[in-house]
Design a protein around this nucleic acid. Sequence first.
RNA 1: GCCCCCAUCGUCUAGCGGCCUAGGACACCGGCCUUUCAAGCCGGAGAUCGCGGGUUCGAAUCCCGCUGGGGGUACCA
Length: 444
Amino acid sequence: MDPAGARHVGAVEHAASIRPVPAGPVRVRMAPSPTGLLHVGGVRTFLFNWLYARGRGGECLLRIENTDTGREVAESVEQIQRSLTWLGIDWDGPVTFQLDRAARAREEAQRLVAEGAAYEDEGAIRIRMPDEGATGWDDAVKGRIEFPNEQLEDLVLVRSDGRPTYNFASPLEDWLDGITHVIRGDDHVSNTPKQIRVLGALGAQPPVYAHVPNVFGTDGKKLSKRHGAVSLDEFRADGYVPPALLNFLALLGWSFDDRTTVMSRDELVERFTLERVGTSPATFDYEKLRWLNGVYLRGMAPGEYPDTLVAYLRERGCDWDEQRIRAAAPLCQEKLATLGEFPAFAGFLFGPVEPGAEALEGAGRVLAEVAAALEAVEPFAAAGVEEALRSVCDRLGLKPRQAFQPIRVAVTGSKVSPGLFESIELLGRAETLARLEAAERAAT
RNA sequence: GCCCCCAUCGUCUAGCGGCCUAGGACACCGGCCUUUCAAGCCGGAGAUCGCGGGUUCGAAUCCCGCUGGGGGUACCA
């Protein structure tokens, strides 16, 4: 035998690994299981699918991998759709369900039995796997991967109760749906040779496989509750905005170059390639997401920010006066990293405050002087307020830094707040004076 | 056990043999600005490229081994 040929072990089984690059349009699929809320790690993978398809005029399907039907499934499915839509990820055609093709799966399995590629075993149907050689593929992100066929067992295609298994249903559907690229999590690598074999038995060409790295929590373990928010819903509730999350997620396992971080949805679509997807798992960095969210919040147009803020607060069940929220928005836009911080930061504009006595210590005089000065300010606006406050400082020989802090605490109830003058303007003369007087009493 | 994958600052990453005395970003530290907090600007610290062998004139980049982590090994997905 030709020694050169013998060395190419894979060649023996290449019938199963030949994978010409599909010539037609790209078609990918996002395949969540309806078992709960959408997990950010999974969403990141869906995002890669979506970016890939949208970037080359392809299609992106949404397929629910359900094995069990249950009442909750419908809710979960809706939840998934709502979350993806919120993020700005859409899909083509109707949502499909794996279970809907159970009958077709059984037919195909029977066909395989008839052809001798599969056999019945205790009521189940198993596929015959080769014992020698190897099954491999050229992964679009990881390169060539091969598994010795002796590792492949005769896997069950259809359970004895008639339901197809995942490793049968998934490749079958990929084939039926004309999926050209399967972009999925790293954890599916070892399923791939099995699925390639299934496809081969079915007489189908395998799609291009691209296994993208998983996303881990801060301890290097699987992302879970104790790391913080994990579902899209939680991030939404915390006040993260879609473009920021989308941008952040895209950077988990993918990069455009050595210096670009902030990218719009369109830029991501235009720039995303599987070639630039990395191979090692990424850790979800909440701090960086927070920073990026702030970047997007600050970058919003003057009209967009208040709208977004109001919508967020309403969604959260907050019934504060809309006009006031809008008026407060500009004071907060550049200071908040998430919308969720607004209530704590600007709440003093919507309800009573309880200044801590320590911060007011010895400030009775300043408070009284400021109250008196504010009586005369006309009109009662930021510029006039500032002028009044500064002249009190001059008169008492205090540095603004020293004098403004107790005033801030008296008026906002906190040492950290939006700009003092603007805050006072918004609060109005009557309320400001009342708070100043209350604080003055507490200070003495 | 066996099979497969992964391994660059704390984190996300750039790097695909010489451009690297390893670049950027978040976080961190210091300064400026300043009514607080942010933001912004300037500067700093931070990686013997997991370890050990090779290959090469030259390796973070290629090869082998090891270690560590992850995944699979189901009539789970």
